[in-house]
């Protein structure tokens, strides 16, 4: 037991460039994978797939899963999991429509209220995990069901439609284009902006530092004098803010809040995080990886659609991609550990 440090001592002088190097390789692999998949589809469908309009479509379809994946990344790095992001998004979208359509709040106020509502759901998750000590899987599974049910209750199980003229600004947020003459959807810019915010949060702020530290060793972090409970709540709440933003983007895109949808998004989001190289055991992960992961999923779905592969097969292929990617990552980690 006490022998290990002695045995490890001679190894110390060799420079082992740690996490950053490995993470970079992981990201390069993910990026290479993305380009490879893109290339394959481009060869299979040279007319349609690589065109500007299809690439825009791919990016546009990345938005919602991408935003949810950013939320999931923050939580997963703390060695937690958030299964509620999909239906919490649906409930937030229903709330957004309730605020703006039913209560006639100004659009900007409705947007702020919706994002904060998403944050509230996250805060409740955080409370259940950090203060009540529930396993994240259970706490967010329960929230997933609660949010799904509440979305149906509040909307009477019917979609709530935005008025295309009165709430044009709301819909413009997703489908409009702030860059004149390009028809490049705003949603993609929102995702890009959100990714930058998430990147800064994770890499430049206390939140990110404590997130990684908690994920690496929660007890040691607490004994180092960090109020880990407080920070876990903040992490889940901030993740909730991203979910609230996703709710706005999806309801703006559809022009309505669809209370019966949402379930299944959480798995796509988690898949994107995992493909992007974030460890489900916590303590390491990157925003860039997650964005690449979300893009890979979008590219696969889009490419298979263009090749007229049946929807059912898309999930099969996505599942296999996850298996292969995570297997390769772990095999590499094991090799790194033994050499």
């Amino acid at each position: 037991m006490s022998s290990e440090p002695t045995a490890a001592a001679p190894a110390a002088p060799t420079v082992v460039k740690g996490g950053s190097w490995r993470e970079r390789v992981q990201q390069l692999m993910a990026l290479a994978g993305l380009l490879l998949i893109f290339l394959v589809f481009s060869v299979a469908s040279p007319q349609i797939f690589p065109g500007y309009s299809n690439v825009t479509t791919i990016l546009f379809s990345t938005t919602v899963v991408g935003l949810l994946a950013l939320a999931a990344t923050l939580v997963i790095i703390s060695s937690g999991i958030d299964l509620s992001v999909g239906t919490a998004m649906t409930l937030s979208a229903v709330m957004s429509a309730t605020f703006i359509v039913n209560w006639h709040l100004p659009v900007w106020l409705g947007i702020i209220a919706t994002i904060l509502f998403g944050g509230l759901i996250g805060l409740i998750n955080g409370f259940n995990v950090a203060i009540l000590g529930l396993p994240p899987f259970i706490a967010t599974l329960a929230m997933m069901l609660v949010a799904q049910g509440l979305a149906l209750v509040i909307s009477n199980a019917r979609p709530i439609y935005f008025d295309t003229t009165e709430h044009a600004g709301y819909i413009w947020l997703s489908t409009g284009s702030i860059i004149p003459g390009t028809r490049f959807p705003n949603a993609v810019l929102v995702l890009a902006l959100a990714a930058v915010v998430a990147f800064v949060l994770l890499n430049k702020t206390l939140l990110g530092r404590y997130d990684i530290s908690i994920g690496s060793n929660e007890e040691a972090t607490a004994l180092s004098g960090i109020n880990t409970k407080k920070w876990l709540m903040i992490i889940y709440a901030v993740a909730g803010l991203f979910v609230g933003l996703a709710a706005i983007m999806i309801s703006a895109r559809l022009g309505s809040a669809q209370p019966a949808t949402g379930a299944g998004y959480e798995l796509q989001a988690i898949a994107a995080v995992v493909i992007g190289g974030t460890s489900l055991s916590g303590g390491k992960g990157t925003i860039v990886g997650t964005v690449i992961g979300a893009l890979i999923i979008a590219v696969i779905n889009n490419g298979l659609q263009i090749l007229s592969v049946r929807q059912e097969w898309q999930n099969v292929i996505l599942g296999l991609v996850i298996l292969v990617v995570v297997y390769i990552d772990q095999a590499r980690a094991k090799r790194a550990a033994t050499t």
Partner: peptide
């Protein structure tokens, strides 16, 4: 188990309490 964030750099392990 209770002292170090093993997967993180020395600098983080030194700074954590004073961040």
């Amino acid at each position: 188990r209770l002292g170090l964030m093993l997967q993180l750099p020395v600098s983080h392990n030194i700074a954590i309490s004073s961040l």
